[in-house]
Simulated assay, not measured.
Amino acid sequence: MAKQWRATQFGAPETWEFAEVDTPAPKQGEVTIRVTAAGVNPADYKHVSAPRPGLTLPVPIGYEAAGTIAAIGPDTEIASGGGTVGDAVVAFRIQGGYATEVTVPAKDVFAKPPRLADEEAANLLLVGTTAAQMLHVTDVRASETILVHGASGAVGVSILQQAAELGARVIGTASESSFARVRRFGGLPVAYGPGLAERVTEAAQGPVAAALDTVGTSEAIDVSLQLVPDRTRIVTIVDAQRAEREGIHAVFGAQPESQAFRDAARPRLLELAGSGRLQVPVARTYPLAEAPEALAFLKEGHPGGKLALIP
């Protein structure tokens, strides 16, 4: 028997159940993972806060995890090739990562880069693929200056590093208490608040080619529209309604095109992390049994890095 967090009703994490469940033996094309760390993301609670089309209770929680292979189905290889019992792996775009053990599609399981700690590996791919898609849809290129709203957050930090790989220069909005984090990952920080457009213009010393919004405030989108003339080079991951009105991009993991892109992006992100060129700052870890406490801390909005659950 395994222990797993499940939403048995729609609502806050406090309503979830930490249940004993049977872990099905892996069939062909499946892998059973003994979880050593589960990534913690806002999507984990947002997606079960209210009924959604196609979502049936109970819903196992958790989209990404790291662990070791406990069993592998017949004639099956993991996505990165091979795979035997005991191998260290990372899995993303799975369901049920908040668990001691989980059986998942082998196509979503990859060898874990040895240099990554389990709690880092478990938090790499959701924010990493989101950041990669934001850079992709805005066509960010070498030598350009771009604006990132919320640069000190988890997605923002991944954007900073991936933009550096592309050769782009990043101006990132943040609170002054988070400026050091933005600088650490290669960005030029500016404080959000009144006068933001003027501060960005002064810092840019030239055109702002694209704007990437991870916070969804009116200020973020207003300033993006003011500074970036080409609306196809503005993207938000928060405010879909405003995006539709303004003719800018909005990307979300549930979109079929997002799913296809993010699946394809996983090997490259693992390569970057494995070589040390993409880091995952981890602020805190919690015991798996304290998942609601971890999410309550995440909801405060300033964790200072990623959170992980440790069985």
Rank of each mutant, 00 (worst) to 15 (best):
R6N: 07
A7V: 14
A12C: 06
A12S: 13
E20R: 13
T23H: 11
T23C: 08
K27Y: 15
K27Q: 15
Q28F: 13
Q28V: 04
A38W: 06
N41C: 05
A43P: 10
A43G: 11
V48P: 05
R52L: 06
E64K: 01
A66W: 03
A66E: 03
P74C: 13
T76I: 03
I78W: 07
T84R: 11
V85N: 04
G86D: 00
G86T: 03
D87F: 01
A91E: 03
R93A: 01
G96T: 10
A99V: 02
T103R: 13
V104S: 00
K107Q: 04
V109K: 10
K112L: 05
R115A: 15
A121L: 01
L124P: 01
L126D: 01
L126Q: 02
G128D: 03
A131Q: 05
A132R: 04
H136K: 05
T138K: 00
T138Y: 10
A151V: 10
A154M: 13
Q162N: 09
L166Y: 04
G167T: 04
T173W: 08
S177Q: 11
S178R: 11
F179I: 07
A180P: 01
R184C: 00
G186D: 09
L188N: 14
L188V: 12
L188I: 12
V190T: 09
Y192W: 14
G193Q: 05
P194L: 07
A197T: 01
E198A: 07
R199A: 02
T201L: 08
E202N: 08
E202R: 04
A209N: 08
L212K: 10
D213K: 15
T214G: 13
V215L: 14
T217S: 12
A220T: 15
A220C: 12
I221C: 10
V223F: 03
V223Q: 06
L225A: 13
L225P: 12
Q226R: 07
R233P: 10
T236P: 11
I237G: 14
R242N: 12
G247I: 15
H249Y: 04
H249Q: 06
A250G: 06
G253A: 09
P256F: 00
S258R: 14
Q259H: 11
A260E: 05
D263E: 06
D263F: 11
A264P: 04
A264M: 05
R266N: 02
S275L: 07
R277L: 05
L278Q: 00
P281L: 07
P281G: 07
A283T: 02
R284V: 06
R284Y: 08
A294Y: 09
F297T: 09
E300P: 08
G305H: 08
